[in-house]
């Protein structure tokens, strides 16, 4: 009798770790870490709603990027072989020209980056170019308010905070009659030429 009472009444819990491991692996396999980060873009309104008016934009205010179905680029009519960093630099020079170079833009307000692709262009190339254009603009906005590019994107992502909204409006030069420094990105309908 006495011997029996001395025995430990504990449940053996050494397999607990195995059970927990099993659960852990199950969750690892069946779930995805939510990826909701990416390049954000605002599409223009329904083409049927836009009044068809012929607006003549001076050649100097257009920065033309064309991509064909073989993912080769033409920038301002010249073949472009360098990487996205060079493109980013050229866009910044174009936008910040302020009328100095007669071939380049009048002011940031009027500068337009025009992107035309082919139906055969891959999404990868398209993303690379959009990334370069947005990168150039975010750099310039960040410079205007004296923050880093990364911080600017954080601010632009959360406009519910009034302080962020203030910085955001300052960066884009918001006045009563529109923006002084808008991101004029025009994405044209893709061509069907191929080649």
């Amino acid at each position: 009798m006495a011997r029996k009472q001395r025995e430990d009444p504990q449940i053996n819990s050494s397999s607990m770790a195995d059970i927990a491991f099993l659960l852990l692996i199950f969750f690892l396999v069946t779930t995805t870490i939510a990826n909701d980060r990416g390049l954000s873009l605002q599409l223009p309104p329904d083409p049927d709603d836009i009044e068809k008016t012929d607006i003549q934009i001076p050649e100097r205010n257009l920065f033309k990027i064309q991509i064909n179905s073989a993912d080769k680029m033409l920038v301002e009519g010249e073949p472009f072989e360098q990487g996205p960093d060079e493109l980013r630099k050229q866009i910044k020079e174009f936008v910040l020209n302020n009328g100095r170079d007669p071939e380049s833009s009048d002011s940031p307000k009027e500068a337009i980056v025009s992107l035309k692709t082919d139906r055969g262009t891959t999404q990868e190339k398209f993303i690379e170019v959009i990334d370069a254009i947005q990168g150039a603009y975010y750099d310039m906005y960040a410079d205007r308010v004296g923050v880093t590019n990364e911080r600017w994107r954080e601010i632009a992502s959360d406009l519910t905070d009034p302080e962020n909204k203030r910085i955001y409006d300052k960066g884009r030069g918001k006045t009563a009659d529109g923006l002084e420094f808008p991101m004029n990105l025009s994405i044209a309908e893709p061509t069907k030429i191929g080649g």
Partner: peptide
């Protein structure tokens, strides 16, 4: 992709995010 974008414009869902 641009066909889809055109339809989105018609449907007035103009906020777009390319997940990358």
């Amino acid at each position: 992709v641009s066909d889809v974008e055109l339809e989105l414009r018609k449907a007035n869902a103009r906020k777009l995010l390319y997940t990358t």
